[in-house]
Design a protein around this nucleic acid. Structure first.
Length: 810
RNA sequence: ACCCGGAUGGCGAAAUCGGUAGACGCGAGGGACUUAAAAUCCCUUAUCCGCGAGGGUGUGCGGGUUCGAGUCCCGCUCCGGGUACCA
């Protein structure tokens, strides 16, 4: 085959650039966007182009996605796999501030570096359809999306208590606050009142929840969304206030415990607090309300110590007629339910604690199976609502809790004191950001016409290049400091007016980007109708579960809104979603401070992109993640070396070995199934096993034993596969060669190893024909000394599992 | 606290339906080739007793179901992730 005896060694640094440029020349990775036969849209979560470059976590995610895309292509789909950049946002802006540069100049550099790294890793990305959220040709349409929501009445402005990060100097969505700390910088979040734009995602809560039942998504992701949406069925109960012409409505999921409601609690911000406070209590209440207001959200949410103040007023329990005190306390939150609760200390942990601190009455109205009506509650509330029955509850005594919830609600409804309601934890989405690096919200304020949406024909509202983009403490966007941009004529009446100076949340950029890819080069529409019909919804989306409740929920919401607006005919953007796991290093999380971050460039340099890709996939189950150990990569590289030299040594003389061939067909089956299931680690193990069989004892492999292996390995190590494919005499790309087909007849063996057990313990193995009968197997087994000596008497029972085992019970 | 995951050799991990626990890889030990080393190839490698043949034990802990449990059921422990005063 070669003129020298020394085989050319495998040098990734030569093979990989060769194929990367050949793919570019041949357009191998470009999808047939307009006339696909079997369109398959494979999407991976686009990265934020940081200055540090590609993180190994990105590479892990993308490689798994790329393998899936290449696999589908080999199966005969017209695969479209695009990639872009989530370039707007606070990350980029903060980084620019830190290094004293401008994001408009930094971003293209970072994008270029990312593109280089992504290219080096050999992804089958169609770079003709590129998306960069920070370019006007993209955010023009992000603004268009905002206008559609505005048109449908789903965008509104309100002054609201918002999470304010004093370091980043911006508002954060609830989803971006962790433990009262800013998700990004870890600063304690404060409460501020600002005029903000919101999207009415809460209106879509029932639909967002219901569709989860049929979506083909990773169960963990669906569960995370369910929890986040937080459906809660209960009732709103109305309590009249004694000596006032007023009433307080509370939300409860435990209407059955109404007889145990011994006091009410309002949130300190509740609108009725002023009216219900008596003169005697006025000072104490005012002081408490002020203290709460000043408190930042961190201490309010982290301290579980119960504090509160009596208002001086009493409410009437609609069931008992008793007068019960009305308190205010910060453990009741204004933003959930009605901002008021009925406190049932006997059966709610928080109420119990509060009642103990302030010496309020605690009454048992639910008894467990071992309790009677007057069993003392001890030192904790009784909260088991599956095994409880009502006591001390008048006509309802004896009812099971679940039944009583309905019965009591119905009874109170009859008295005009109740209404069954469903509450959701999901809040409206605050999309305003008082920052610079984002799409300006397309609204103009006019003294006469109010908040006027920018006409679609005037989009984009371009983000001006300004040098003083640093946010200040005022809570007003830096754009407001630029009069020439800020002052505009009203689109309706042409009088002097002002632009909205907030930009929108980065999550709005990424909530619709999948719609843009197929139409990325269309400048007249956000997404072309025909292209969209052909390619969407996305067939396969793979990404990290850290986006389970942010990006994925927002994308679903925006898709529903666009469907309702008549722009698309589907309401779920991602037919199938799979969450990949997290990758750690030597048992520890990777972080800059620990200095154990993996630089992909270094590994690709030393081992080659193919080996690096394959090792990332080999170190653990893709959907669970794995532990990156530096030593491990050599095993994968050895495998690729062996494949390389096998192809060089392959002979075309004679015939392939029968045993190797059988193994080959089994391997084709296994690798196909595992790859489809994202079980990449075991797919690779199966290929290694086959490699071992092919080269056992340095035997010379036959060409036909290797051809299918090259196809199987192609999604994992695409460069090497192409080179081997060419080496084996092909001129086209291996990715147009199809996926090998296994011969089912080659999978069945004539003989098997039958395990012989006595009382469940393995005593022997028999090499027997597959179709051996129980009696024949038993007779053979009894001839084995190692078996016979354990079978003392007549067997009590014999269990025979064909092809697997024979168990003799004595 | 609640909701998800998870716990298997020295290490990363395998194990369709309950049916040979530890595939594949790393590391380690031994051998072949070599002046030598690297590379490559072959063998061994859960653990205990035993010279050996062989036998015992073993999938976080305690019970249970079963001819048979890493896998199913009940009760715990620890680790990772998510959510959290959500009424």
């Amino acid at each position: 085959m070669s003129e020298t005896d020394v085989p050319t060694p495998y040098v990734p640094a030569a093979v990989e650039p060769k194929w990367q440029s050949r793919w570019a020349e041949r357009g191998t990775n470009a999808a047939k966007l307009d006339a696909p036969t079997r369109p398959f849209y494979a999407l991976m979560m686009f990265p934020y182009p940081s200055a540090e470059g590609l993180h190994v976590g990105n590479l892990f995610a993308f490689t798994g996605s790329d393998i899936s895309a290449r696999f589908h292509r080999l199966l005969g789909h017209d695969v479209f796999q695009p990639l872009g950049f989530d370039a707007f946002g606070i990350h980029s802006e903060n980084y620019a501030l830190k290094v004293g540069a401008h994001p408009m100049e930094l971003t293209p550099k970072n994008v270029a570096n990312f593109t280089r790294q992504l290219g080096r890793a050999g992804f089958m990305v169609d770079w003709n359809q590129k998306v960069d959220t920070s370019r006007a040709d993209y955010y023009k349409w992000t603004q268009w999306v905002f206008l559609q929501l505005h048109k449908q009445g789903l965008a509104y402005k309100k002054a609201a208590a918002v999470n304010w990060c004093p370091t980043d100097k911006t508002v954060l969505a609830n989803e971006q606050v962790e433990n009262g700390l800013c998700e990004r910088c870890g600063t304690a979040v404060e409460q501020r009142f600002l005029e903000q734009w919101f999207f009415r995602i809460s209106e879509y809560a029932p639909r967002l929840l219901a569709n989860l039942d049929w979506l083909d998504w990773s169960p963990v992701t669906r569960q995370a969304q369910r929890n986040w949406i937080g459906k809660s069925e209960g009732a709103e109960l109305t309590f009249d206030i004694a000596a006032h012409d007023a009433s307080v409505t509370v939300f409860t999921t435990r209407a059955d415990t109404i007889y145990g409601a011994t006091y009410l609690v309002l949130a300190p911000e509740h609108p009725l607090v002023g009216a219900l406070t008596t003169d005697a209590q006025r000072d104490a209440v005012t002081q408490y309300v002020d203290a709460t207001k000043k408190q930042d959200l961190i201490s309010r949410k982290s301290s579980k110590e119960k504090t509160g103040v009596f208002t001086g007023s009493y409410a009437v329990n609609p069931a008992t007629g008793a007068q019960i005190p009305v308190w205010i306390a910060d453990y009741v939150l204004m933003e959930y339910g009605t901002g008021a609760i009925m406190a049932v200390p006997g059966h709610d942990e928080r109420d119990f604690e509060f009642a103990q601190v302030f010496n309020l009455p605690i009454v048992r109205v639910v008894a467990g199976p071992d309790d009677h009506a007057d069993t003392p509650l001890g030192d904790a509330a009784f909260t088991d609502d599956d095994h409880g029955r009502l006591v001390n509850s008048g006509q309802f005594d004896g009812l099971a809790v679940q039944e009583a919830k309905r019965t009591v609600t119905t009874w109170l409804e009859g008295k005009q004191h109740a209404k069954a309601v469903t509450n959701y934890r999901l809040h409206d989405w605050c999309i305003s950001r008082q920052r610079y690096w984002g799409p300006p919200i397309p609204i103009i304020y006019c003294d006469d016409c109010g908040a006027v949406p920018v006409p679609e024909s005037q989009l984009p509202v371009e983000l001006p290049f300004i040098s003083d983009f640093k946010p200040d403490d005022s809570g007003i966007s830096p754009l407001a400091r630029h009069e020439e941009w800020y002052r505009v004529p009203c689109p309706t009446c042409s009088k002097p007016a002002r632009r909205e100076t907030d930009v929108s949340d980065t999550f709005l950029d990424s909530a619709w980007y999948f719609l843009r890819y197929p139409s990325a080069n269309h400048s007249d529409v956000p997404f072309d109708a025909a292209r969209t019909k052909t390619w969407l919804p996305v067939n396969s989306y793979i990404g990290g579960n850290e986006h389970a409740v942010l990006h994925l929920l927002y994308s679903r919401f925006i898709t529903m809104v666009l469907k309702d607006g008549g722009f698309i005919d589907f309401e779920e953007p991602f037919t199938r979603f799979r969450a990949h796991g997290m990758i750690i290093r030597e048992g520890a999380k990777m972080s800059k401070s620990k200095g154990n971050v993996i630089n992909p460039d270094v590994y690709m340099e030393e081992w080659g992109a193919d080996a690096f890709r394959m090792y990332l996939m080999f170190l653990g189950p893709y959907e669970e993640g794995g532990d990156f150990r530096d030593q491990g990569i050599s095993g994968v590289r050895r495998f690729l070396d062996r494949l390389w030299s096998s192809v060089r040594d392959a002979s075309t003389e004679g015939a392939p070995d029968a045993d190797v061939l059988r193994k080959m067909h089994r391997t084709i089956k296994k690798v196909g199934e595992d790859t489809a299931n994202l079980a990449y680690n075991t797919a690779i193990a199966a290929m290694m096993e086959y490699m071992n069989a092919v080269r056992r004892g340095e035997r010379a492999p036959h060409r036909d034993e290797l051809l299918p292996l090259v196809q199987l390995v192609a999604p994992f190590a695409p460069h090497l596969a192409e080179e081997c494919w060419e080496q084996l005499g092909h001129s086209g790309s291996v990715f147009d060669a199809g996926w090998p087909v296994f011969d089912a007849a080659m999978l069945v063996d004539n003989t098997v190893d039958l395990v012989v057990q006595v009382n469940g313990k393995v005593r022997s193995k028999l090499h027997v024909p597959v179709d051996i009968t129980q009696d024949a197997a038993l007779a053979l087994a009894m001839q084995e000394e190692g078996v016979a000596k354990f079978v003392t008497g007549e067997p009590k029972k014999v269990i025979f599992v064909p092809k697997r085992l024979l168990n003799i019970v004595v």
